[in-house]
Design a protein around this nucleic acid. Structure first.
Lengths: 200, 200
DNA sequence: ACCTGAACACCGTTCAAGT
DNA sequence: ACCTGAACACCGTTCAAGT
């Protein structure tokens, strides 16, 4: 057939990304299907493959959007107060975001690239941007510590908050009750900062 | 046809679980398929459904085996030294296990039950068993703290180590380099314990 | 009683053919 | 140039029919 396109390439792209995102918000990665996306936007399955390489490529771009969203939230956290207070605020903002969009955030961990293939650079850059905000706060708290020590503590805090969020979100591992996660993040961040100060 | 069974029901069950486990070790949850399992064990697809309700049920039982394996590893950690030392040893044992069997351990987080359905009790019991080992160590370190505070700190440590392991394993989020994970676990556990002692 | 295998309702992806 | 839709090689799950 070859219907004359009623959408510009950019519109079509957004259409696909939007439909995919809402499928994932509902049913996680398992809820996504190329055929269902095509149905929802009124195109044939083949069309998706004119816009994206394949489902992995499509999913990677959705993840990119989500990382951007979280980055924007973290940007909104005021740069005021002690480093510990800022870290607490960042941790809470992270948890808020991941608990509001659990399926979308979980996508970053549910989705694995085919073995051998690496994440594109634009993706890695986005992630690095996220981490820098945390590193800056730790650096402010530990002005005379080696940069690699600062980075390590930033990674520990990041991973720790991620772990709490992950267990709270995982419908299975209810070691962490959903409403308790906030308390755990506070406890982690404040106890860890106390430990940092004590150490030397 | 209806071939006379060359295996006892128990043998058949093990056959299925073993074949499924090795498929998952290779390709994660995505690598598992009922038809492929059937092919490998020389039965028809239908047979799997005489033994397990469906793939979710099968996967849940594989997860049970993995939890048991980790529990055995943690049991092997000697109950000697300061609580902090024991916690360090437990954290390292957890990390060792999850890095040796990344796809299998990841299964617990890749696999989601259909919405609404809850984890069976036998599954929840296994998880509780894991946590108790950690709680005991924290309790020893904080003898005069309220039990719920002890539990919370145990949860924080558990989630923190899980977070580090999760980021190290996720082929994407290489914020945590694979060989650096051990250092991060040490840093988390020891700094957190320092913070606990300082607080009061 | 146990197991089969066809049947049903789905997938992701490709690509010749149509406009 | 853009899009289709049939085709290919897969899925999970069920269940009548066979031994």
């Amino acid at each position: 057939m070859g219907r004359r396109s009623s959408h510009t390439p950019e519109e079509l792209r957004e259409l696909i990304l939007d439909a995919s995102t809402s499928l994932i918000s509902e049913g996680g990665l398992a809820g996504l299907s190329a055929r269902e996306v095509a149905r929802r936007i009124g195109y044939s399955p083949g069309t998706l493959y004119n816009v994206f390489e394949n489902l992995d490529d499509l999913v990677l771009h959705i993840e990119g959007r989500i990382i951007d969203e979280l980055a924007r939230e973290l940007e909104g956290v005021p740069r005021e107060g002690t480093p510990k207070d800022q870290a607490l605020a960042l941790g809470r903002a992270y948890l808020k975001f991941t608990s509001e969009k659990p399926k979308l955030w979980n996508l970053l961990f549910e989705h694995h690239l085919p073995p051998g293939s690496d994440v594109p650079q634009w993706y890695q850059h986005k992630l690095d941007g996220l981490m820098q905000r945390v590193e800056a706060v730790v650096a402010e708290s530990l002005p005379d510590r080696k940069p690699e020590d600062v980075r390590r503590s930033a990674h520990v805090l990041w991973a720790g908050v991620h772990g709490i969020s992950s267990l709270a979100t995982a419908d299975k591992l209810s070691v962490v009750t959903k409403d308790g996660a906030g308390n755990l993040v506070d406890l982690l961040v404040s106890t860890y900062f106390d430990g940092l100060k004590k150490a030397n």
